[in-house]
């Protein structure tokens, strides 16, 4: 019988080791798998490469993982956050590397990684400093830059519903990067607020089919990043 459930966030992230590449779902706090991130802080692997649109807020979740000095490189589109100086301080001190990728190119590189497409051409960044060192080709009279796909050892994601097969639905704009990250990681780990019986998610509305998911852990009342930040919570305390 297929059953992808694991008993705890700690068990779900137990095999993430030093030097892993980890995709983390979420756009700001929407879709951020905060309990999985905190389990990764507890487990403690370092020298991680993390792929996320941002660099976290306050001193919880992704920002806390960075602040705990477990991340050596961020691949993201927007590393500035109004309420966090964690990444900027480390970056200015030369203690963390940044690969800046436009948001749409980031999403497509991840999608390509999951879809078996090694690289693609896009017009995004033509004429900007971000094409430096990249191959440019003219196709039908327009210039395009070659972008390589992105894959990861692990993806940490948050879903609204999940069943034991790993079929997923999401809540509103919390979907963001999760479906493409689920495809692009060797091991996709999902925290879900609602574990339902197989068949309870109508096949017509499954957003991520279970084939892209490896582990499901139930987190009934996931913490809200903005609430933790407003309360001044710091992880680990």
């Amino acid at each position: 019988m297929i059953n992808k459930q694991v008993e705890s966030p700690a068990a779900a992230v137990a095999d993430i080791v030093d030097g892993s590449t980890v995709m983390v779902g979420g756009f700001g706090e929407a879709g951020s798998p905060i309990e999985l991130l905190h389990a990764l802080i507890d487990k403690g692997p370092g020298n991680l490469t993390v792929i996320n649109n941002n660099t976290g807020s306050g001193h919880v979740g992704l920002a806390a993982l960075i602040e705990n000095r477990q991340v050596s490189k961020m691949i993201c589109s927007f590393p500035r956050t109004a309420n966090s100086t964690v990444f900027p301080d480390l970056y200015r001190a030369g203690l963390i590397e940044l690969e800046l990728v436009p948001q749409g190119t980031l999403a497509e590189r991840i999608r390509a990684g999951g879809a078996g497409i090694p690289a693609f051409f896009t017009a995004t960044t033509i004429g900007t400093p971000l094409i430096e060192g990249k191959e440019v080709r003219t196709i039908d009279g327009r210039d395009y830059v070659l972008e390589y796909s992105l894959k990861a050892d692990f993806a940490l994601l948050k879903s609204h519903q999940a069943d034991r097969y790993g079929n997923l639905t999401f809540n509103k704009t919390a979907r963001n990067f999760a479906p493409v990250m689920a495809m692009a990681a060797t091991t996709t780990i999902v925290q879900t607020a609602n574990l339902v019986k197989a068949g309870d998610i109508d096949p017509e509305i499954v957003i991520t089919p279970g084939i892209f998911v490896d582990r499901i852990v139930t987190v009934h009342d996931p913490a809200l990043e903005s609430k933790l930040v407003a309360e001044g919570v710091k992880y680990p305390s």
Binding site: G28, G104, N171
Partner: peptide
């Protein structure tokens, strides 16, 4: 907090709205 715009501010969805992932959005 999970229904936000690109500026990470809360918004609403009109009747007839659609959600999609980032690769579709771009």
């Amino acid at each position: 907090p999970e229904l936000i715009n690109a500026g990470k501010k809360p918004v609403s969805a009109i009747p007839g709205a659609a959600y999609f992932h980032h690769a579709d959005s771009f």
